[in-house]
């Protein structure tokens, strides 16, 4: 499990790696939330390209970040999801749950 944060202007990117489950989600969550609080981005990118496995804990991670970003109206993009991760995300109906557009998981906020 790993998480690397990069900040470029108003964009925070979280590069996640390894297997994302209830055990590993906590560290990822803390790293992302700290970076978001510090930088108040207009866009958060969660890059899953190095994540080899994810269960519903990953949905909780994405949904939780989405809720937090709604305070400032920032957008959330989820990128690099493998077929296994895409399958879990689709099941969660990410597009239906919140104002999320499933095409490549570009999750935009209203404002």
């Amino acid at each position: 499990m790993s998480v690397k944060i990069s900040v470029k202007g108003e964009v925070v990117t979280a590069y996640l790696g390894g297997e994302l489950d209830h055990h590993s989600a906590r560290e990822m969550r803390e790293a992302i939330d700290t970076a978001v609080e510090l930088n108040i981005p207009t866009l958060l990118i969660m890059d899953f390209s190095q994540v080899s496995f994810m269960d519903s804990s990953g949905i909780g991670l994405v949904m939780g970040r989405f809720r937090n970003l709604q305070r400032t109206g920032a957008a959330l993009h989820v990128t690099g999801t493998s077929p296994q991760i895409t399958k879990v995300m689709k099941l969660a109906g990410i597009g239906r749950l919140a104002k999320m557009d499933l095409g490549g998981f570009e999750i935009e906020n209203d404002k």
Binding site: A25, R29, D55, S56, S57, I59, G60, L61, M63, G64, V88, L91, A92
Partner: peptide, 9 residues
């Protein structure tokens, strides 16, 4: 942090 989707999965 829980989505409530474990059983659905």
């Amino acid at each position: 942090e829980r989505a409530g989707l474990g059983f659905a999965v």
